[in-house]
């Protein structure tokens, strides 16, 4: 049961995060092409899967997989998250759409 509740929460939070991103780009008048939406959604999915991998390997008592696999996945999620936010969402140096 807890898997279903947590799974529902994951989906809800993803939808909420996407809605917030939508609001953010609208209020900031940021030009947001379809591929930026795609990248953002993929990053969200990847991050959730990485955290789920980390906790699953803890749950199955595979410490090596937690440290090596989970660690690598989460590190990649953090780095790509920073890159995504800095250069894609904030669009530093890019164009803003017309008001």
């Amino acid at each position: 049961m807890i898997e279903f509740i947590a799974g529902g929460l994951v989906v809800t939070c993803m939808v909420l995060a996407i809605c917030c991103l939508f609001l953010y780009v609208r209020k900031n008048k940021i030009k947001f092409a379809w591929w930026k939406w795609a990248l953002s959604i993929i990053w969200l999915l990847y991050t959730d899967i990485s955290v789920a991998f980390l906790s699953t390997t803890i749950g199955e008592n595979e410490l090596g997989a937690t440290l090596r696999g989970g660690g690598a996945f989460v590190a990649i999620a953090v780095v790509t998250g920073i890159v995504l936010f800095r250069f894609v969402i904030l669009n530093k140096g890019g164009k803003k759409r017309d008001a």
């Binding site: 898997e3 929460l9 959730d48 789920a52 906790s55 699953t56 199955e60």
Partner: peptide
């Protein structure tokens, strides 16, 4: 929540 779901699934 993904972490909780993963842990719950694994155990």
């Amino acid at each position: 929540a993904a972490g909780v779901a993963g842990y719950a699934n694994a155990t």
